[in-house]
Design a protein around this nucleic acid. Structure first.
Length: 377
RNA sequence: CCAGGGGUGGCGGAGUGGUCAAUCGCAUCUGACUGUAAAUCAGACGGGCAUGUCCCUGCGGGGGUUCAAAUCCCUCCCCCUGGA
């Protein structure tokens, strides 16, 4: 993998770059749509290209459970398996462990209001998984089988899958973890990062993940530690507090410590209203479930907000989802039809919304790239 | 006309004397979703407002019994099945 910075903004920390992999180049900043199970839910790989996806991120945890990395490898590797010849990332599975563990116990996500929640303390374990020094024991959500994933397992799986960029295995702490828990967890994540680098034999690029929760000194410590290792790029992960401002501050703390010449990926963040801000803070790539996940709940993203297409009011609306959108859905379909499909529980509704939303996100970031080029950002 | 069954909130369908403004499902409405959970989660869903262990109206219409009725009785209307 090779990362070239074409331009650094004079007005912000935004940069324009080219990330080159053996499956082609992507222009950064770039949105990375989520293809957890080696597919963007509801779309074919051809359609993913048609909406402007340059790169996708798939998932170690899910593909390990089903169909198993061996089958993917036997199928010619993940690119061939899913008929995607552009760049691909795989996430390490660290976040899934969080989702199954404290995330599930507490009903919290990466950015959560935690008022009234008891702190997660040092030594505490989630209810359904067990985090040890070497990795995580958990039950398969598919059949209940007892399974283990640690840094070694994660890298082996990711090597078998064969994405262009893989991630180190980390522990994602919950938003209500206290300082001591977070610090201890961080040491573990750092040890695992070192181990991941040692284990990896493939020529895949590997990104280390910065953790540290909402604590400034831990974030900085983590960024310094991970930056010193021989990673090809960096992921910024974990929880981001309960406000957008805090999130931006945290990104600032971390990015100051990361080398200029390597790409930075923000894991799992990307509400449309935040995209410009995170790019201005120096993020090169970021993935988020939002356009695809919300599409399946009937939400369309448009220029000045979002539409809940479940609303009956749209049954009489003959406008496209977004008048200013150039996507094939907006060229050919109207809101009245899309609401009807949603209410009739037709899966095509979810396809149309996914298609539009991804086009919307990808074009939003493309516009931002152009504005960096033009010196407007 | 006779015999039997039935009419409950937008729809379907529980309930057969008080704990019923009435289980539940669907539909509807409101909200949620950030390293994926499409077939999901939370709340509302007779009316009113002072949002409450509050007040009205209420289980086809009318009348009655009872301290108390969606539930029992009478009567009328309507629907279904079978018979003439």
């Amino acid at each position: 993998m090779e990362f070239r910075i074409l331009k650094k903004s004079k007005r912000s920390k935004a940069r324009l770059g080219i990330l080159k992999t053996s499956h082609g180049e992507i222009e950064t900043p770039s949105f990375v749509p989520v293809a957890t199970q080696a597919v963007i839910k509801t779309l074919t790989s051809e359609e993913a290209k048609a909406v402007g996806c340059q790169i996708l991120i798939s998932n170690t945890f899910h593909l390990h459970l089903k169909p198993g990395e061996k089958l993917v490898k036997a199928g010619g590797g993940i690119h061939k398996f899913m008929n995607w010849d552009r760049p691909l990332m795989t996430d390490s599975g660290g976040f899934q462990v969080f989702s199954l563990g404290f995330g599930k116990d507490l009903g919290v996500g990466k950015i959560s209001k935690i008022n009234g929640l008891a702190k997660v303390l040092l030594g505490q374990q989630p209810q359904n998984i067990k985090i040890t020094d070497n990795g995580v024991w958990f039950r398969s959500p598919i059949n209940g089988e007892k399974l283990f994933i640690g840094p070694k397992e994660s890298i082996k799986i990711q090597e078998a899958l064969g994405a262009d960029i893989i991630f180190a295995f980390d522990e994602c702490t919950p938003p209500n973890a206290n300082y001591e828990y977070t610090k201890k967890s961080l040491e573990k994540t750092h040890r695992w990062a070192t181990e991941c680098l040692k284990i990896k034999k493939s020529r895949q690029a590997i990104f280390g993940i910065v953790q540290g929760g909402k604590f400034k000194d831990l974030r900085i410590e983590s960024a310094k530690f991970i930056a010193d290792l021989q990673f090809d790029g960096f992921g910024i992960g974990g929880e981001f507090g309960d406000s957008k401002n805090l999130m931006l501050k945290m990104i600032d703390w971390v990015i100051k410590e990361l080398p200029e010449n390597k790409p930075r990926h923000l894991l799992g963040i990307g509400h449309p209203e935040d995209i410009l801000k995170i790019i201005k803070s120096g993020i090169d790539t970021f993935d988020c479930v939002m356009p695809t996940h919300y599409a399946r709940h009937g939400i369309a993203f448009i220029d000045n907000g979002r539409l809940d297409m479940n609303k009956s009011a749209f049954l009489k609306d003959k406008n496209p989802l977004d008048k200013s959108c150039g996507c094939a859905v907006c060229q050919n379909y109207r809101r009245n039809y899309i609401v009807h499909l949603l209410k009739a529980k037709e899966i095509t509704a979810l396809r149309l919304l996914t298609f539009h939303n991804l086009y919307f996100f990808n074009s939003l970031v493309e516009k931002i790239r152009n504005n960096i080029k033009n010196g407007k950002i």
